[in-house]
Structure formats: C-alpha cells, structure tokens
Simulated scan of single mutants.
Amino acid sequence: MRTGAAAGHAGYYHTAGCFGSDEELLGLAVPFLTDGVVSCEPSVVVLDDRNAELVRAALPAGAEVTFLPGGAVYERPAAAIRAYRKILAGHVAAGASQIRIFGELTTVTQGVTWDWWARYESAINQAYDDFPLWSICAYDTRSTPRAALADVMRTHPRTAMPDGQYLPNAGFTDPHLYLSEQRPLVPDPLQASEPTVELLNPTLSEARQAVHAADRGHVASMEVEDLVVAVSETVANAQRHGSGPVQLRLWSGTDRLVATITDAGAGPDDPFAGLLPAGDGTNGGLGLWIAHQSCNHVALHRHADGFTIRLTAGNPHH
C-alpha cells in the first residue's frame, strides 16, 4: 500500500525538492526517509559525500536506509536509468509496495552536460512509471543555474517543500512534448577550430578509421574504442533512417575527442530514443541507445538543415 503524499497514486510519484540551506535539505530528506523506514519501505539516498553525511547524522540511529554514491550512479543518464530499474525491480520482486529514493544529481552534471540530464529528468517520468516509486530529486538553489532550475520545474510534476507540502508544478511539460522540443546545441569550444577530420557520406569502415585518425593519445584507449562504436552506429543510423548527405566531423583536444554526425532528416521519431531501451531498434533507437551507453556526453539538435548528434569521449566538461 502506498503511503504519505503518494498514497493512492499508481506508478511513479516524481517530485523536485529545492533547498537553499542545510536545514532545508534536512527538512526535505529526514521526514521523507524516516517515514519510509517506519512503513518498512526500501529507502535509498543518493547524494554527494557532504550531503550524505549530513543526512546520515540526522537520521535516527539504526535507520535502515541505503546510501549509494552519487558520482557512481549519475555518470551517464541511460546507465542511471538501467541501474535504477534493476534496483526497483529487485525491491518489487521482494514484495515492496513502495520504494523511496532521495537523490541529488552531482554539481558537475548541471554544467555543459545538463542538456542530457534534463532529458533524463523528463524521460524517467515514463521510465519508472511501472514501479511504485516515490522520489525527491534534490536541487540546491545556491549552486544550480537558473536555467537548470527552470528545466526542473518543467520535468517534475510536483515540488516537495521543506515544510512537508507537495505542490503541483504549473509548468510541468509532458515528456513526449518536452523531449521533442527543438533546443540549440551549445557548441564545444573545440568546434570553433577546423575539424581534425571531415568526411562526407563515409562508409562505416571510413568512419571508424576517422576516429582513430583523430586520436592524439589524450583520451583513454577504452573510451576511444567506445567512441569508435558510437560513431559507427550513429553514421549507420543516419544512412539508414535519415536523409543524405551524411557529414562526419571530428575534433581532437587535450582531454577529449568530439564527433558530430549531421544528416538532412528530422531525427528519431521516438523522443525517448537513446535514454530508454531501444525496443525493436527501428528508426535509430538502438544506435542512439548504444551511443548513450558508450560516450561521456551525447547532445541532440534538430535544426533547420536537419539533425545533428554530438558525441564526446574523454572529459566533456571543458
């Protein structure tokens, strides 16, 4: 049986929790978690080390709350979805009627890679909706950029307040609409220079060779090989599901490799492509999902001339 604010709710009860002080953080976290413990509901915390220790110290001694490292869980959005679905399925199989998660994206995710984490926050409204999950996604208003907070209000149906209220977000946008919106692609500074490699209508073999040709030894070899796979899959998608010509560009920096694949099509029909399991793999879903698993950042951009995917290996946080 569902309890608390989620009582009577079917599926995912997705809330944002904005806080501006340690006291407000604890006001959100402690009652939420202790009520879960009292109700014998699996309760999970995913915070950075400092905030995790604050919450741990404020909980009653012996409270059965599981703490997971935020940096490990929130490495890549598609991987986070896969990991959470496994955790949730395990709790449901063990008989849980509700699972509580109090989580906080790491500060670094709110920088240049925020676009795919905003897509994550929107997509999980569907990705977790077959589980009896109640989560509070915590955002520190002192450090979260204003634009990111605006996205938080659009991707969460409701906001948890430190005084215990749960208020609907008037700006909440259905994930199908939010994920289909056209957004500008924030350029990587490397893209201000001439590409290291530029190919028009490459074969898959040429695309793979191009990644190796652009590699200057500044990126771990395993990440380079992951980029090889992602570029090959993305070029194949563009050729199969997009409209020609297909253009591949690669830039090499001191800490990263950046690839863009552009075609004249409109991009995938499925707005969740890349973040959720690919289903039957039609219209590019499988290749995008592989790219989201393989790269340290994937940016999607629908524009007047077509559709561009940017893939980053190495450090995407420039």
Rank of each mutant, 00 (worst) to 15 (best):
94 A>P: 05
127 A>G: 15
102 F>K: 13
151 D>G: 01
87 I>C: 07
168 P>L: 13
122 S>Q: 02
170 A>G: 06
96 A>D: 02
170 A>Q: 07
149 L>T: 06
173 T>A: 03
181 E>P: 08
89 A>G: 12
144 T>A: 07
121 E>L: 03
121 E>R: 10
112 V>L: 09
174 D>H: 00
139 Y>E: 09
143 S>W: 15
157 P>F: 05
124 I>N: 07
164 G>D: 08
120 Y>T: 07
148 A>C: 09
175 P>E: 01
97 S>D: 13
117 W>L: 09
125 N>F: 06
159 T>G: 00
171 G>R: 01
111 G>L: 13
182 Q>V: 00
122 S>D: 00
111 G>V: 06
129 D>F: 06
162 P>W: 15
109 T>C: 10
147 A>F: 13
174 D>A: 00
87 I>W: 15
91 H>W: 10
168 P>R: 08
127 A>F: 03
150 A>V: 12
140 D>Q: 00
102 F>C: 15
176 H>P: 01
164 G>C: 11
119 R>Q: 03
154 R>F: 00
132 P>I: 07
92 V>K: 09
143 S>C: 15
161 M>I: 04
159 T>K: 01
88 L>D: 05
144 T>C: 12
182 Q>M: 01
137 C>A: 13
137 C>E: 11
136 I>R: 08
131 F>R: 04
160 A>D: 06
164 G>K: 15
114 W>E: 11
173 T>S: 04
151 D>Y: 01
129 D>C: 13
179 L>I: 01
130 D>N: 06
90 G>K: 01
169 N>P: 03
156 H>G: 02
87 I>M: 10
90 G>V: 05
152 V>W: 00
89 A>T: 05
149 L>G: 10
179 L>D: 00
109 T>K: 10
142 R>N: 11
155 T>P: 03
122 S>M: 02
109 T>R: 11
173 T>V: 08
171 G>K: 01
108 V>M: 10
137 C>P: 03
183 R>L: 07
